[in-house]
Amino acid sequence: MRGSHLAVVVGGCAVIVAAGFAAAPPMKLGSAAGPQEPVPGDSHQADPNQPDPTPGATAGGSGVGGGQAQTFDGPAVSNVRGTYQAQITVVDGVVTDVVALQAGTSAAESVAVNSMAIPLFKERVLEAQSADVEAVSGASFTSPAFLESLAGAFEAAGLS
């Protein structure tokens, strides 16, 4: 028995989605002032300095499953940490993907591993590889500005 839900309760709405999202393409993050890489299927890109109050909807992406995939952009929401914009992909009324079109002001910088050369620790080089696992632990998206944009995308998709 396996239940998979996406509970988006911003504004009191709860949406149940099918198990699993499609694998999202790696997010390209530009420099602080640089333009963002457009996401496939997204026909317009909001200027980070000009928040777009109107959520846009664009049909795009290759057909996922049987139905037609539609993408919906949330509004660009700015706070002191930068500008956030969510995009959801909907197939037959089911959210199949959530990506960040804009996520804060800049990318994380790589930090040299020798900054923490504590003898206790084991140094490792990790490669991304496929594996038979039951769950995956990763960073979650819990930024309020991102969620506000996400709620806008749900509204644009008529799912809230």
């Binding site: 699993g20 993907d97 991304a128 496929s130 594996a131 995956v136």
Partner: peptide
């Protein structure tokens, strides 16, 4: 015992089903 992956930090959205950097 459950096998759980550690997400590739470059993956956005739900990392389920993507390649992992550790198990």
């Amino acid at each position: 015992e459950r096998r759980v992956g550690i997400a590739d930090p470059r993956v956005t959205g739900d990392p389920a089903g993507t390649d992992v950097i550790d198990v």
